[in-house]
């Protein structure tokens, strides 16, 4: 049996109450195996981001269970959860979330700072992460002075700096042009292959999803079978439109 990093079963999550209630997840079960790259695909509103947040312990499910490396997340203390998020998880966001007035290096070492790592070690590890992403010459620059691709590389360096077991990427190429996006994808998949870091990518981009080992399709808070895995873009749009009408 493959080593399961994350094992979610019958996850439900809803927001709001009464008439305004919105069921984001209606019972999703899924596993993430160690060392694999997994894509969670769906349109906006499908619940894919909510699922990622729950998997990454950023949010708690209303119902269902989540096991992390075999441990039930409900049994974890706040301290354990903070430690997991800080040491074992790395985050890559579509909107980068870089601190604008801080330097690139300061941004990259933020998880280490939160972990309580000393200043010298922070700098060493931060520079190592930046070197790995060929950004070491920008270490002293302000984060705002970087181009989109450089920003996302800085974000990946930040996700990498704590040597995580899992990197969660929420639309990592969403704000990038095709060429830069492709480069960022290459970096992520290289990390997955060469360092064995488990990759969980949330995206609506079929091409990016296709590069992953496995895909999970979400629609209206439920997992569905892959619609047409290798369909071209226009037909996919038509297909999903038809599905929406029939639904």
């Amino acid at each position: 049996m493959p080593d399961l990093v994350l094992d979610a079963s019958a996850i439900q999550k809803s927001y709001g109450r009464g008439d305004g209630r919105f069921d984001a997840l209606k019972g999703v079960s899924m596993q993430v195996r160690r060392g694999e790259s997994l894509a969670i695909i769906g349109k906006s509103g499908s619940g894919k981001s909510t699922l990622m947040h729950i998997l990454a312990l950023l949010d708690a499910p209303d119902a269902g269970t989540l096991a992390i490396e075999g441990v039930d997340s409900a049994s974890l203390s706040q301290t354990d959860i903070h430690r997991l998020r800080n040491r074992d998880f790395g985050f890559v966001f579509q909107q980068f979330f870089l601190v604008p007035d801080a330097t690139v290096l300061e941004n990259v070492v933020l998880p280490l700072k939160i972990a309580g790592v000393g200043a010298r070690e922070r700098t060493e590890r931060g520079m190592a992460a930046l070197r790995a992403l060929e950004l070491d010459d920008k270490a002293k620059n302000r984060a705002t002075a970087l181009s989109g691709g450089q920003k996302q590389r800085a974000v990946i360096a930040r996700a990498l700096v704590n040597s995580p077991t899992v990197i969660f990427a929420d639309e990592p190429t969403g704000n990038l042009d095709t060429v830069t996006g492709g480069l960022v994808e290459d970096i992520l998949f290289d990390l997955n292959r060469e360092q064995g870091i488990t990759l969980v990518i949330v995206t609506h981009d079929e091409e990016l999803a296709a590069r992953c080992d496995r895909q999970i399709h979400l629609r209206d808070g439920l997992e569905i079978d892959a619609p047409e895995p290798t369909a071209s873009a226009p037909s996919r749009t038509v297909a999903s439109a038809v599905q929406e009408v029939s639904a």
Partner: peptide, 13 residues
């Protein structure tokens, strides 16, 4: 706000 969210996401208590 976002920076606070980021720090908390990264495990800041």
């Amino acid at each position: 706000t976002r920076e606070i969210g980021l720090m908390k996401a990264m495990g800041m208590r």
